[in-house]
């Protein structure tokens, strides 16, 4: 066990409490919290837990933030830390960040994922249901239970299976949207399009799918690709902008076909 403890100054984005709360309204500000006695083995969210316990015991309002699995797979945790979605460590969700990567005495700035399509609920919690609605528009293969043939009747070459898997690793956290200056969701949409278009099962609905998902993406107010590749840089699952090229290519083919 590491005996060393660290201190930090934390600039937290707070939506003012005590007001009647309206979903999506942004009238927050940064609040400074000093925290001491932090073990380098703590995760970033455990540090926030401790901060919250201290805020609560001084009879104040703990900061709201989201997390669930705390092992980097559910995609619930968000947070922009020191200006970067999920913090500066690459390929890592906020819940897998550990305090050993933050120097003692440093200032840490914590903000919510900001995007027009992600209205703030309170403090650092935002509403990402727009991503669900894109998936509902077409991010699936239409198959009813009971009608599937034997699993081995569908052969998938290893390369396509591996590529489909890599795209399917998306956890739907929305970091790509938060970092894009256009708040584009194209990495998120591209990942699903890439996965399903690589598999034989996904072929029949291939073009209908891209059409419906892109339409919904626009309805939700996500912007177009900014070409900055910020999404790729912050994706905790290492999904690359190759899926955006594939999305564009699939969309083009759909347009030509219709």
């Amino acid at each position: 066990m590491n005996k060393e403890t660290r201190n930090y100054k934390i600039l937290l984005w707070r939506e003012p409490h005590g007001k009647v709360f309206f979903k999506g309204e942004m009238h927050g500000a940064f609040v400074t919290e000093n925290i001491s006695g932090i073990s380098p083995d703590m995760s970033f969210l455990e540090m926030l837990d401790i901060l919250n316990d201290r805020i609560l015991s001084r009879n104040d309002h703990p900061v709201c933030f989201e997390s669930d699995c705390r092992e980097g797979i559910c995609g619930a945790c968000s947070l922009v830390i020191n200006g970067v979605a999920h913090g500066r460590q690459t390929g890592t969700t906020t819940c897998q960040l550990h305090m050993r990567s933050f120097k003692s005495g440093s200032t840490i700035v914590v903000e919510p994922f900001r995007a027009r399509s992600f209205p703030v609920i309170r403090d650092l919690v935002v509403d990402r249901s727009a991503l669900d609605r894109i998936m509902q528009a077409g991010g699936y293969i239409s198959v009813n239970v009971g009608s599937a043939p034997d699993a081995h009747s569908i052969l998938v070459d290893k390369k396509s299976a591996d590529q489909a898997f890599e795209a399917a690793a998306c956890i739907g956290c929305g970091a790509c949207v938060a970092m894009c200056k256009n708040s584009s969701a194209m990495l998120f949409v591209g990942a699903k399009i890439s996965q399903l278009s690589k598999l034989p099962q996904g072929q029949p609905e291939r073009y209908e799918r891209v059409k419906r998902m892109v339409e919904q993406m626009q309805v939700e107010g996500f912007g177009g690709c900014s070409n900055t590749m910020a999404c790729e840089a912050v994706c905790p699952k290492g999904i690359t902008t190759k899926v955006i090229s594939e999305l564009n290519w699939e969309f083009l083919k759909m347009t030509l076909k219709s």
Binding site: Y140, I141, V143, V145, G146, S147, A148, P149, D150, A151, H152, I154, L155, V156, D157, K158, A161, A164, F165, A168, Q195, L196, L199, Q201, G202
Partner: peptide, 22 residues
Amino acid sequence: VRIIDHCVAQGVPFAREYGGLL
């Protein structure tokens, strides 16, 4: 056995061998 069939049909990318089988 039917669960695997259904999940493959849904597009779940299970690990595969070089011959394309699961």
